[in-house]
Write a protein that binds this DNA or RNA. Structure first.
Length: 509
RNA sequence: GGGGGCGUAGCUCAGUGGUAGAGCAGGAGCCUUUUAAGCUCUUGGCCGGAGGUUCGAUACCUCCCGCCCUCACCA
């Protein structure tokens, strides 16, 4: 049960006094004729047409939230804001009458929504303003939002007063964050543009957008722990998907040449600056191409998204200039690790000897790691942070890549790449393994590598193997963390800043 | 899970072993082209929670809760 604090009680009192005046503080309908941006545009056009004359007074009815409230006796001022913009309002007693003036000055608060009928004009100071003939409250705000004030200094810089910056409160009350922080609204606008750019790109490339199950009887396609849930009537445990991979590739068996899905994955792992338990992924698969062609499409796709969202393929992330223009650097994982650590992991082909050489070089390999995981950790700690410009790291060890085709000349490696931008791992792709016998063996090997009890051991997906036996064309596949790309394009180093509702622990309230 | 930091008014933050302060927001008043409107006066806090040390804790200690950073984990 809500217990109003002092500020809220004052607003409740005002609400009641508005009702006592016979005014509905939450009317069902408004009479808006223009968005705020439209009203301003109409006035600017009228000014243009009038030349040196005073422009014709165009009547408008605009609605919005009060973002500054400056009662001043007989001549009061406010700014109202809607989704399109913000405009000043002038409440003049001679125009709106005593009662309305009192209503505005005494019972209307900062952040209330009002409707203003009036005419557009420009004040002596040059600000476009709605001179009100009448106004009406259209939604009373009971809890005050945080107030942010700005003053433009003589040198053009902006000084800010107060704000709403505590990350926890901003995430828990994203509505308040969005209401008072326009730059946060910009982030999610950019997010929407990013996703629509990816979709547009893939559509134009001839991919078919599909949807596959989120609730799955067997999870797979990635090495991650799943969330488990249960279907009551079927008396069946189900997993929330950790990737789309195995379902999408079945569709290539079904004779679609190119498919993609944009959606949510769920991984029951640690949360961090780069990880949220649920995150948005785009995966696509295309028949008759290999991972080299996947790289070509990838760099075009990301450059396209960057340009669509930021206006340029050259972006800035945390002070780094990053050029997304293809072609990107391509280097094998082996070479990248040699370059950065001096270790050639192909000379240390088992976990024990690789651990030994890593220790020699002052690294701290975690005990009980498999050989592949050690290689991967060298990538993560010694290579990844330095990959500022877009880079494809290619040709991964076979034993950490059970769904990729082996390289012809080198059975220890597979045709796989990950790509990195601004030190962030963005995505993963390979020439898709379509040999059902080899695939079955890989599943078995993975099982043996990790053991039945390991949390990383994966159930063998027999239905997937059956699909492979029906025949899948040679194909390239691709997966990318969309949130990571949005982080990159909005210059936000924390994934929570690009998720409207990032996962947070429960808090007793 | 380990390490470090933080949690004080609606918001942003000071602060001290003797039960708290500023700015903005809020309230009252003056003001019919203001612009962080201004000026005068003013309300507001279980100082995250629970224990402990102490004559006395918001401050010192322990535990708990939450957030941030970092490491671990993470195809």
């Amino acid at each position: 049960m809500w217990e109003p604090n002092d500020l809220e009680q004052q607003r409740l009192d005002k609400l009641n006094r508005i009702r006592e005046r016979g005014i509905d503080p939450y009317p069902k309908r408004v009479d808006r004729t223009h968005t705020i941006a439209e009203a301003i545009a109409v006035f600017e056009a009228a000014e243009e047409a009038a030349g040196d004359e005073t422009p014709e007074a165009a009547p408008v009815v605009v609605c919005g939230r009060i973002t500054s409230h400056r009662p001043q006796g007989k001549s009061s001022w406010a700014h109202i804001e809607d989704g399109s913009g913000r405009v000043q309002v002038w409440m003049k007693k001679d125009n709106i009458g005593d009662e309305s003036q009192d209503l505005f000055n005494d019972e209307i608060d900062l952040f209330d929504f009002i409707q203003v009928s009036g005419t557009m004009m420009r004040t002596r100071r040059g600000e476009i303003t709605v001179l009100a003939n009448e106004f009406a409250p259209i939604s009373k705000t009971l809890s005050p939002l945080p107030v942010i004030k700005e003053r433009r200094l003589d040198d053009g810089s902006v000084e800010r007063y107060g704000g709403f910056t505590d990350p926890e409160e901003r995430y828990r009350q994203r509505y308040a964050d969005l209401a008072v922080n326009p730059d946060v609204r910009e982030v999610f606008l950019a997010r929407a543009k990013t996703i629509s750019a990816i979709r547009r790109f893939l559509d134009e490339e001839g991919f078919l957008e599909v949807e596959t199950p989120i609730l799955q009887p067997i999870y797979g396609g990635a090495a991650a722990r799943p969330f488990v849930t249960h279907h009551n009537q079927l008396k069946q445990d189900l997993y929330l998907r950790i990737s789309f991979e195995l379902y999408l590739k079945r569709l290539l068996v079904g004779m679609y040449d190119a498919v993609y899905e944009i959606g949510r994955d769920f991984r029951n792992e640690g949360v961090s600056r780069k990880h949220n338990p649920e995150f948005t992924q785009v995966e696509w698969y295309k028949a008759y191409i290999d991972y080299n062609e996947v790289m070509n499409i990838t760099e075009r796709m990301v450059a396209y998204a960057g340009e669509q969202v930021t206006g340029s393929p050259v972006i800035t992330f945390q002070g780094h200039k990053v050029d997304l223009t293809p072609p990107w650097k391509r280097i094998t994982l082996r070479d990248a690790i040699i370059e950065n650590t001096g270790i050639d992991y192909t000379e240390h082909t088992d976990a024990a000897s690789l651990t030994a050489v890593m220790k020699e070089k002052g690294k701290h390999p975690s005990p009980d790691s498999t050989w592949g995981k050690l290689v991967d950790s060298l990538l993560g700690t010694d290579v990844e942070p330095g990959l500022i410009q877009p880079t494809f790291i290619t040709d991964y060890p076979r034993d950490i890549s059970p769904l990729a085709k082996m390289k012809d000349d080198d059975p220890a490696h597979v045709e796989r790449f990950e790509f990195f931008i601004a030190g962030l791992e963005m995505g993963n792709a390979f020439s898709e393994l379509n040999d059902p016998i080899d695939q079955e063996q890989r599943f078995i090997d993975m099982g043996r590598l990790y053991g039945e009890d390991s949390e990383e051991s994966h159930p063998v997906d027999e239905d997937y193997l059956r699909a492979m036996r029906y025949g899948m064309p040679p194909s390239g596949g691709f997966g990318m963390g969309v949130d990571r790309l949005v982080m990159l394009l909005t210059d936000r180093p924390n994934i929570r800043e690009v998720l409207l509702y990032p996962h947070l622990r429960n808090r007793d309230e």
